[in-house]
Design a binder for these strands. Structure first.
Lengths: 199, 199
DNA sequence: GAGAATAGTATACCTTAGTATCTTAAAATG
DNA sequence: CATTTTAAGATACTAAGGTATACTATTCTC
């Protein structure tokens, strides 16, 4: 029992500890992906006890999501303004797939399906205590289109505004990889008709 | 160790055993729902060993899905022919929600998200070795609409044909309950514009 | 500064999905 | 009918998510 070193003279708390855990989680996620990622290993890496994790995140998928939101590629996607709704949508979603490709959808699939147990699809891109950035961007693109008389925003319901997120997640969950062609098809066959429907 | 009864003179095999397991699974699902449903309990109820289950179904969600497909309410939904695509779609999906309401979407949510780990959304309604009945019905409804010149089937891609399944599943995963109003909104705001898009 | 409240640490525990192993009944093959 | 093959039975095991408990270092409050 002779601990040769003064192991933990200082005990981390609050934000300090939280950051250490999130960093460890982020490292692990990059190294081995969500599927093989375990809570025990995160705890070990962060030199923290498992209950510390569960005190902050109710479940594994929640911790993983937090780590990605904190350290993952930022969703600082440029909102395009090409002069055409169609082009703007294609451009915007093309930027999004790059982020997913960094991980590979295969590695994210498990996380997404686990998250769906707790939150609805359209909220998957929403950080706690913040706006859904994807949603905001879509609305911005639609506003631009309204100025060009391509559509009437007031006629679009929340369900319709969430459609891009839903379709995108569906592809991530269903396909190995989301290509540019897939995005073009989604925009031309689904989003454009819905957004510009005369009603 | 004195087994007073000749417990298992006969050892069940093949389809016999499979049926016994599926029956036990179906009973359990009805009694306690998917979340509390365990493989060990199914095995016990069926007087079978756990490896018997895993030899046939690779995972819990797969066994549950099989049990529902076998004993659950049949998808023998009547294909409506009201003379209007919109009415047909609303009518058809209204029949579907009845089936889901029998369980309550809450009880099915976990099953659906678990299934999504193995299969894409649009295949959720497809039994092994059979056609996707939901898909077939949608196509039938669209054929009828084509005869009335409401749309041109040849212009609709597989992605578009799967859209009803995707949207329906999204609602089941996202909402507590899928109401008639929700269905009407999905049909009017999304499906009709997509199916009848001029392009 | 004394004492209470808070929140780490360490560790054991429970539950359940899923696997491995060994024995044995039943079916298939000849 | 003897032998081989297949698959069920029994049971033990592993791994991981998640919880409970006892103890103790910090911080808060008075």
């Amino acid at each position: 029992m002779s601990k040769t070193e003064a192991n933990h003279q200082k005990r981390r708390r609050g934000a300090d500890l939280e950051n250490a855990v999130l960093s460890a989680a982020w490292e692990l996620l990059q190294e081995i992906g969500y599927h093989d990622f375990t809570m025990a290993e995160v705890a070990k890496r962060a030199n923290a006890a498992k209950p510390v994790l569960y005190r902050r995140w109710p479940e594994k998928s929640s911790l993983a999501a937090s780590a990605i939101l904190k350290f993952g590629p930022k969703l600082d996607v440029k909102i395009p303004d090409t002069g055409s709704l169609r082009e703007d949508l294609v451009d915007f979603f093309s930027q999004l797939i790059k982020i997913f490709d960094m991980f590979g959808t295969e590695k994210l699939k498990g996380l997404v399906t686990d998250r769906l147990k707790s939150i609805p699809m359209e909220k998957l891109f929403t950080a706690p205590n913040s706006k859904n950035e994807l949603q905001t961007a879509v609305e911005q693109i639609l506003k631009q289109a309204e100025k060009r008389n391509e559509l009437q925003l007031s006629k679009l319901s929340p369900r319709v505004l969430h459609l891009p997120s839903v379709l995108f997640i569906n592809e991530v969950v269903s396909q190995e990889v989301v290509t540019k062609e897939v995005i073009v098809a989604i925009v031309d066959e689904i989003l454009m008709p819905v957004f510009t429907a005369k009603k």
